[in-house]
Design a protein around this nucleic acid. Structure first.
Lengths: 341, 341
DNA sequence: GATAGATTTGGGAGCGCTCTCAAAAATTAT
DNA sequence: ATAATTTTTGAGAGCGCTCCCAAATCTATC
């Protein structure tokens, strides 16, 4: 394989390098007949442009990075991430971008990886999955070097950066209001980590719903969780002594763990205690337990994140933008509303 | 930012471009004193080499691709993939490689994406997650263009390609032997798809174990599954009329679905029917159902796949190699062995 | 049919780095 | 001290592409 270049195609076709380049980038000012001839030669020879050469000359790599910082690597096995990645990958394919994945497990890794991410000639822009305190550093660094950035999930300091998120406050509010409407009085919540905006926002929605209906906010009905099944299980054990009659869990996985704890304690779901989760992943519906939950459009979230980023890349520096997606309450069995249907 | 180049560092330090390049690639023949001076200048100026320029000149991108073909995109939300990616990402970070992810949902996407994967100047090598019939095409193409490849999971045609896999036959054999040892007589299996080597290999292990112990192989105790919870559920429903007293499911997710179906049918687990899964993901141990299963070292699998690939990249064309990892039987409650412990 | 204007093409100068080769400097041997 | 080695350095020629600018070709106009 003598490594075909533009030059070769040019020679074969009897045109100049420039013309072949124009055809490749489908520049309008090429005579149709010539274009066809060049295209044919490219096809016949199996020529493929050299990505690095192209990037070097054009300053565009058509590659974007997805950074999953240390704070998420722990949760990475949560079904949320495959869904998110699916959306992101789909959008990248669609728009002819390549996706580079940076999954960092430790802070040292984060710093080690940083030059590759920020280095010139590699990424056109980055998506940062965040919402965690610890990620401010990396977001700040990307902004410093003027790399186009879209943060997935509202970051703690959001004034100068574009981000996309779901309306967590509204979603949680809706879930809890639903429980209140069903007559539940002692509604507890298992939150996400307080070091994350998701955790905080969903808690806020919970509080807001209670307040609106004149129910008291009791600190002992609020337990911080960590988005894992185990975490939900232990959180529920702490909740049990305070006898909640409903629980809003900030993720399906935690809801499942909580239900396990409740059942172990001899409680009947949903008669004695109702549950609402958050995410609506397959395990929520195909399980023995048919979970009432909030559906997040995660795949769509990924797609829109990519499209926002590409827009920032291609249309230069604009003021930061934000996209907020809506969620949907999916009523199944664990909230005890089923008998009404 | 006037885009710092090698040249600038050279001028600042009073050496030549070549010397700076040598320092960057830590070539031995640079005087220590000079090296320090250059390093200091780089540090002070925050200079970062231009990735594309480097790739163009050196013909190395230090980027590898992970291709998840059409056949897996459907299963992508299976916990297997996050674990695999975790291992792969970890090894990439460790070895200073960047990971590009290609998740393709349709055959058209696969063909559309192909030029980016195979194009020169982008990837140094690729990992292909496979084991499915439909992936022969892409594996063949990569081989054609002499791209270093490691296939994750034994491919159907494996004679001329390096791959890594777990010993599925042995693992299934072990699981089924365990059930036989516990006195089960009518052992069924819910397999993976027959279009995949995993599906076939685990089935073979199952058959082998039965044969060895002189038990008959009954076609109606073998149902093809699809690695999903739902699939396991429906497979179990088909199995129920034939009254198995144990089921070996080729994945934990399917085992969970099958157990759900069995319970719905009023069977007690493990007294009336025992289950063994495959994977050992957290849901297997933290669930209400404590699943006996086969533990696969998935993270390790990812790490070794990367290391094998890097070896192929850095040490040229060798004969195809294969790495087979061991699995471990994890005994919990669903096989009914607990009382013996 | 000559001229102004638009359209299409080619040449050349980079993009920022690596790498070979030969020159220069430092080291050792005589 | 000088010659013979060895180590360290610099110059220059690419790597394969894009993109600006000027030359060539074509079209429309008077």
């Amino acid at each position: 394989m003598p490594t075909l270049t533009l030059e070769d195609i040019a020679r074969q076709t009897g045109v100049s390098r420039s013309t072949v380049s124009r055809v490749l980038n489908n520049h309008p000012s090429v005579r149709e007949e010539v274009r066809q001839r060049v295209l044919a030669a490219i096809e016949a020879s199996g020529y493929q442009p050299h990505a690095a050469a192209r990037t070097l000359a054009s300053k565009r790599s058509f590659t974007i990075g997805l950074i999953l910082p240390q704070s998420v690597s722990f949760f990475f096995t949560d079904p949320y991430y495959p869904h998110l990645i699916k959306g992101i990958a789909q959008a990248c394919n669609q728009h002819d971008y390549t996706l580079a994945l940076f999954l960092v497990g430790t802070r040292e890794e984060e710093e080690k990886i940083f030059p590759r991410i920020s280095g010139k000639g590699f990424l056109d822009g980055v998506l940062i999955q965040s919402g965690h305190h610890g990620d401010q550093w990396i977001i700040g660094r990307m902004l410093d070097i003027k790399m186009p950035v879209v943060v997935c999930g509202r970051p703690f300091r959001s004034d100068n950066v574009s981000y996309i998120d779901v309306d967590n406050i509204r979603a949680a509010h809706q879930a809890v209001s639903h429980l209140i409407r069903l007559g539940r009085q002692r509604i507890a919540t298992i939150t996400g980590p307080f070091a994350s905006t998701v955790g905080l926002d969903r808690l806020e929605g919970y509080k807001k719903a209670l307040q609106e209906r004149g129910l008291p906010i009791q600190e002992n009905l609020i337990v911080e969780g960590d988005f894992t099944e185990e975490g939900g299980y232990y959180a529920m054990q702490r909740l049990l002594p305070h006898q909640p009659d409903a629980v809003f869990a900030a993720s399906d996985l935690m809801a499942l763990g909580a239900i396990r704890a409740a059942k172990e304690a001899g409680l009947r779901v949903p008669e004695q205690i109702a549950f609402v989760g958050f995410d609506d992943f397959p395990l929520a519906s195909s399980n023995e337990i048919r979970l009432t939950t909030i559906r997040q459009p995660v795949v769509q979230f990924g797609i829109q994140a990519v499209e926002l980023l590409i827009d920032l890349i291609e249309h230069g520096h604009q003021p930061p933008r934000r996209v907020i997606l809506d969620t949907e309450l999916i009523i199944r069995d664990t909230c005890g509303a089923a008998r009404r249907q």
